[in-house]
Design a binder for these strands. Structure first.
Lengths: 346, 346
DNA sequence: GTGAAAGCGCTAACAG
DNA sequence: CTGTTAGCGCTTTCAC
């Protein structure tokens, strides 16, 4: 058994109250005893029992995080990176991360959140992939547990942090337009997610800002997975005249789309330019390297934890934080064929 | 405040012990009272306080998991998938996952393990990426905390689970040999990790089994990251005559290697065939699709939890479990150029 | 400055 | 079958 407060108290002939105070830096305890206590504690290898402390203080120093499982099957590197950054930040602030990975449908996810969202188990929670009217948000509000959302939440009372989806999408599409593309397809995320909507809005506004029409046949909803991107791209190709460029709402779907294009015998970017979103490491390593919108993933993780800690301390109102993103061109985009040929002809 | 056992007991004019027993399915309690108790509990929305229970039972129903951070930066989808599967399995068995993501060097990782490995905080632990003489294993043994390793541990007292690294590597390299390759490079993982050694051993034995020499200039150590794979491939290319095939010890390094080959103007597989290891989803979506060794990632996660639960129950000795892997050919491999040309001339 | 005592919510002997 | 009694290890009034 590892030593307890009482063990230390016994040796020093003190009460455990005093030992507790000495260790927690209570100013009322004499400097001399503080020194004696802490050096003995060190010597005995004392480590406070987090469970007992949690029971007494009603604070667990633990943050809950539910990562999306279905249908992404957790294969999106974006989440692993986010998770790592959040975990690291939490640990630095003395918090631990409690992880839940619900399987299956929306109901399963909500249930997982409900199970995890026990104020006696965690002090706060990080939510990902918010939907338009997310039941989970209502649930947490009802419970009264502090939380922060990775992604934009409509309720102004809710704290959230997000990359600038609309601006990033705008920049990406605007670049395509500036290269001369006029027929630009879009593969969106699940329609009910706020990130999907925001990125589509960036696409829409860039298109209409340039006076370009949006052909519904070139808009296809994906599910943020590779197979989803593949299927969506295939549908766009099959729907008739292929676009000269496609804006895909996340990187892993873009990989699927690139594959579909190759299978259809279309070259990237000669026939079709492709742009993704997220800026995961893998994007630089596909062929051709994928143009994408870099999200500050590490920063998102760190800030999410920081905002949550503020929320948990109870001070200040809800925080809404939009982090800038950076469009990063690459060889997956080029001028449309007609234009390219014109240039070649000089 | 959510209701406690005492609240239920008060309403029913029972003692909290009885209520506790009724809820935990103790056979001694009368069927009638059990019904009354559980229906009231349900009605009042009673949820046991995990913290209090943990303090009383000295069991936390929590599993600790440290994911490797540096230098992989958590960008390897293999770990996210493993994490998800383990989390899911844990939850189904009534356990929660406690996550730690140490930053930086080996010392930081060991410290993170030491912090997490508190028997009063978690009941057991899953370790990843074991090294040959891993201090963390000694540490956990010293603490007496049950744990299971993802990867092979040399100490027979330690439970572990692993894909069949050597056989998988052998099959992959053997396939290359059967296509006529004789000069096959190898990019290994960090030399101190057991998985690196085992995969290299598969490579070595396939080569020597076919009577092929191993050229040290074509063996390069990577670090399981994309940039690492890129650098290693570059070094092999620069070292002199390029090999006609390369076996890369994980998929993300293979992506880096493919990029290095392209940058050097070498075609895949016409000039150089590439095989990876792990079977992450992304492998199917690069161009050309990467031949790789499929690990049963989901199964590894599930089994790791299952073995750990057995260890924690104290019954049975250490378990050592090797799961079969499956080599999956794809378009990133083909016959060597000379042979291909010979066939063409046919 | 320090100690005594109560209690966080639950489980686990030990009685009856 | 059920109640009583002790804790699990820590924090936190309230006294002195």
């Amino acid at each position: 058994m590892s030593p307890t407060l009482q063990d230390i108290a016994d040796v020093l002939k003190l009460s455990k109250s005093t030992v507790s105070r000495a260790l927690s830096g209570d100013p009322r305890v004499a400097e001399s005893t503080r020194v004696r206590v802490s050096s003995l504690a060190q010597h005995m290898g004392y480590r406070p029992n987090a469970t007992a402390r949690a029971l007494a203080t009603r604070r667990t120093n633990t943050i809950g995080l539910v990562v999306p499982w279905a249908p992404r099957s957790l294969s999106d590197p974006f989440y692993l990176e986010f998770l790592g950054a959040a975990g690291d930040a939490a640990m630095r602030s003395g918090y631990s991360l409690f992880l839940s990975a619900p399987d299956g449908d929306g109901a399963g996810a909500v249930r997982a959140h409900a199970e995890l969202a026990d104020p006696r188990r965690i002090d706060g929670m990080i939510l990902t992939e918010p939907k338009a009217n997310d039941e989970r948000i209502a649930l947490l509000h009802g419970i009264g547990l502090p939380f922060v959302v990775l992604g934009v939440a409509s309720d102004p009372e809710v704290s959230w942090i997000s990359g600038d989806n609309t601006a990033g999408a705008f920049d990406a599409v605007d670049h395509l337009i500036s290269l001369g593309h006029t027929r630009i397809a879009c593969i969106t995320g699940p329609p009910d997610q706020t990130a999907s909507k925001a990125r589509f809005e960036g696409y829409r506004s860039a298109m209409s800002g340039a006076g370009l029409p949006i052909d519904r046949n070139t808009i296809e909803a994906g599910d943020f997975t590779q197979p989803g991107g593949h299927t969506a791209m295939r549908a766009i190709i099959d729907s008739g005249r292929a676009p000269s460029a496609v804006f895909v709402c996340n990187d892993v779907m873009a990989f699927g789309a690139m594959r579909a294009l190759r299978e259809a015998g279309l070259a990237i970017p000669a026939d079709v330019s492709v742009v993704g979103f997220d800026g995961i490491a893998m994007a630089e390593y596909v062929d051709p390297p994928l143009a994408t919108v870099n999200q500050p993933i590490q920063e998102l993780g760190r800030m999410a934890v920081q905002i949550l800690i503020e929320q948990m301390s109870g001070e200040g109102g809800p925080a809404h934080c939009v982090l800038p993103v950076q469009y990063r061109p690459s060889n997956s985009v080029g001028p449309p064929r007609t234009r390219a040929e014109a240039i070649n002809r000089g």
